[in-house]
Computed example of a mutant assay.
Amino acid sequence: MSSEGVKEDCLGWAARDPSGLLSPYKFSRRTVGSDDISIRITHCGVCYADVVWTRNEHGNSKYPLVPGHEIVGSVKEVGCSVQCFKVGDRVGVGTYVNSCRECKYCNDGLENYCEKGPVFTFDGIDADGTVTKGGYSSYIVVHERFCFRIPENYPLALAPPLLCAGITVCTPMMRHKMNQPGKSLGVIGLGGLCHMAVKFGKAFGLKVTVFSTSISKKEEALSLLGADHFVVSSDPEQMKAMKSLDFIIDTASGDHSFDHYMSLLKTGGVLVLVG
């Protein structure tokens, strides 16, 4: 479909100040360029980053701010040079919508380290100089390089968390070869990242142990998420009884020491911090 169409209003939910209160907001998206895709948004996940930015907890939020970076929908328009997608395709968009696409990091597929700075899905500076608006909206314009195909047999409503929490744990798991069936994985914490790490771990055939300071999360870890073991990390006896692990992913968000987890690793084991 041509990118010469008339621009339509985009309807979103925006915060106007650090209260973080969202209210209806009408705005315009940038024109679809030759390498861009316009996506009709059907679902968007809720990430704690949305809260952080709408409340200006980093001190540099640009209002009005439309959050949302776990976006799923269908392609409604493509630029004239787009080769990988067509109208109607099911796609997802994560934390970034663009980068320079020319530096050494972009050429290595590490666009998040772009030397000129990646363009964040919301509250970033877009190709046309405007401030990006996120997925709490009716549609979005994204460079095709930052779109990901959603399989036809995968429910769209389940896909959004994979685009932030999912990739946060899956990337180091793949990079450090944590997809070897029969090996052991420890996951520290039981929040948004942990539940993804447990599910990926089980899908890869790993023996998964969840570490938490709260015994109340045991049932969720074992019955709902399918972990093999649950350890109360504040209990020295339970920690002492733990056998050595091949891998550990630390997803805990609060300040904590990870020294005593190091001793649970086998020689040559891997501990990844993502919390």
Rank of each mutant, 00 (worst) to 15 (best):
V75W: 01
G254E: 08
V142Q: 12
S38T: 01
E70I: 05
C170L: 12
V270N: 07
K199F: 02
T130A: 12
L21P: 01
D50N: 08
P67C: 00
P161I: 00
G186F: 13
R30E: 00
S3M: 07
K133D: 13
E57G: 03
A165N: 06
H229E: 13
V51S: 04
E144K: 14
V93E: 08
W13C: 04
D35S: 04
Y105W: 04
V274P: 10
I125F: 14
P64W: 04
T42R: 02
G109V: 02
V141D: 11
M173L: 15
Y136M: 11
W13S: 08
S137I: 09
L163P: 02
S23W: 07
S19I: 12
S212M: 10
R90L: 12
A197Y: 13
K240S: 12
S74N: 10
L190V: 05
H176W: 15
R30A: 01
E77Q: 14
A165Y: 04
G135F: 14
V78N: 02
C164G: 06
S244R: 15
L162K: 06
I248N: 07
L264T: 05
K26N: 02
T251G: 01
I248H: 03
F211P: 04
N56S: 03
V6P: 07
L245P: 10
P18N: 01
M262D: 11
M239N: 10
H195L: 07
V232W: 12
V231A: 11
S257E: 06
F146E: 15
H43C: 01
S19R: 09
S216L: 11
V46D: 01
G33S: 14
W13Q: 08
A49W: 08
V75F: 01
S19Q: 13
D250T: 08
E102D: 04
Y48H: 15
K177A: 05
H58F: 11
F230K: 14
I125R: 11
G129Q: 11
T42V: 01
E219R: 00
G275M: 05
K183I: 04
G79S: 07
K218H: 08
A241R: 10
I37M: 13
A241W: 09
L273A: 15
H43K: 00
L158N: 15
E111I: 07
P18W: 03
L273E: 14
C10P: 03
H229D: 12
G5W: 00
G191S: 02
R29Y: 00
G205V: 09
C164Q: 06
E70H: 00
E77P: 06
S212G: 10
A15D: 09
A49H: 11
R55G: 01
V141R: 13
H143C: 07
G182E: 15
V52I: 10
D246I: 03
L158A: 14
G20C: 02
G201T: 12
T132R: 13
N60Q: 01
S257F: 04
S234P: 10
E219G: 00
F204M: 06
K207R: 10
A159H: 09
H58R: 09
C44P: 00
L65F: 03
A221Y: 15
Y261R: 06
K199Y: 03
K177P: 02
W53N: 00
